Simulated assay, not measured.
Amino acid sequence: MSGDGDAQAIPPNKTIYINNLNEKIKIDELKKSLQAVFSQFGKILEVLAFKTLKHKGQAWVVFEDVKSAAEALKSMQNFPFYNKPMRIQYAKTKSDIVAKADGTFIPRERRKRHDEKDKKKRDQQQEANQAVMGVHPSYPPPYGAAPPMGGMMPPYGGAPVPPRPAMPEAPAPPNNILFIQNLPHENNPLMLQMLFGQYAGFKEVRMIEAKPGIAFVEYESEMQATVALQALQGFKVTQQNAMLITYAKK
């Protein structure tokens, strides 16, 4: 696969070629970070990066469709990635995974059908087991069964009494530490350092191994933390994970 040459002459396609990447970043971390940064634009089929001297500072990201690749190229051109602006263009040649998809060999689709068949078989087996035990989700519960969770026992002939809603907690006042939620569980600290390190006053990222999906980011001052909060609020780390940022409780 090649990405150099006249960018203007390369037609839009599903694969973008990225160069000017930081060569000090390990390949595994680089690929994970690229996956996290670009997955907000659409489904990624593959991220390619190599250890060879010829391919240092370069990577390829293969999207499922051309529209996603076009949005990624437009939005992320010159984005500071590990302190270096990314240079992005369309790849000159197709990746292997796209070439296979263009032909008759589509292993992903076959795996999907196989998984669906297995799921259907498991569901049928579960229903059969429930029927043997006299339990079925559409049957009413037997006399004397425990009431459904989430509410109190209804009075005779009355409707269930809904549980009392919990009182919402008051938000923390503005300060120099941000609390980040809704992160993908496979997220890594380097990815967050790259995002939040763009803003002045950045000090560190703290993640809790026992609680994936959250992190704390510290700045030198409350004002600097506020700038980062406003800039990155709702940033999509993946299509399903838009960051929710608040001030941390002290």
Rank of each mutant, 00 (worst) to 15 (best):
A210C: 06
P160E: 05
G213P: 03
P160L: 10
A128N: 08
M152E: 13
P174D: 05
P163D: 06
S221I: 01
V161I: 15
A215I: 03
P168R: 13
P171F: 15
M194L: 04
Y139Q: 09
F216Y: 10
V132D: 01
T226R: 08
M133A: 15
K203V: 08
P147F: 11
Y199D: 00
G158W: 13
T226C: 02
F216L: 08
N182R: 15
A200I: 05
A210M: 13
N182G: 06
P147Q: 04
M149H: 08
F196E: 00
G150L: 08
A128Q: 13
F216N: 00
P137A: 04
A128K: 15
N187W: 03
F179M: 03
P174A: 08
M153G: 00
F216A: 01
E204D: 05
P148M: 07
P160D: 04
P163T: 01
Q125D: 12
T226E: 12
L192Y: 05
M133N: 09
A159P: 08
P163W: 05
Q181M: 14
G213T: 03
G151H: 15
D123F: 10
P184I: 05
M191S: 07
E222I: 01
P141W: 08
Q125M: 13
Y139T: 05
Q125Y: 09
E204N: 07
A145R: 03
E218P: 00
K121R: 15
V132Y: 05
Q198K: 11
S221F: 03
Y143Q: 10
Y139R: 12
H136I: 02
P165F: 13
Q181S: 12
R122M: 15
A172D: 03
S221Y: 02
Y199W: 07
G201H: 02
V217P: 00
G158A: 14
L178Y: 12
Q126V: 15
L195Q: 02
G197L: 05
P163G: 01
K203I: 10
M133R: 14
I177H: 06
H185Q: 08
N129S: 11
A225I: 01
M167I: 14
G134Y: 08
P142S: 09
A215F: 04
P148H: 07
H185V: 07
A170P: 03
P184G: 03
P163C: 06
Y156H: 09
M152S: 11
P141K: 14
F179T: 00
N175H: 14
Y219C: 01
P160W: 12
L190A: 04
Q124F: 14
N187R: 00
K211V: 12
V132E: 07
V161W: 07
V205E: 01
P141Y: 09
P212Q: 02
P155Y: 15
R206L: 07
P154R: 06
Q181I: 04
P147K: 11
P141A: 14
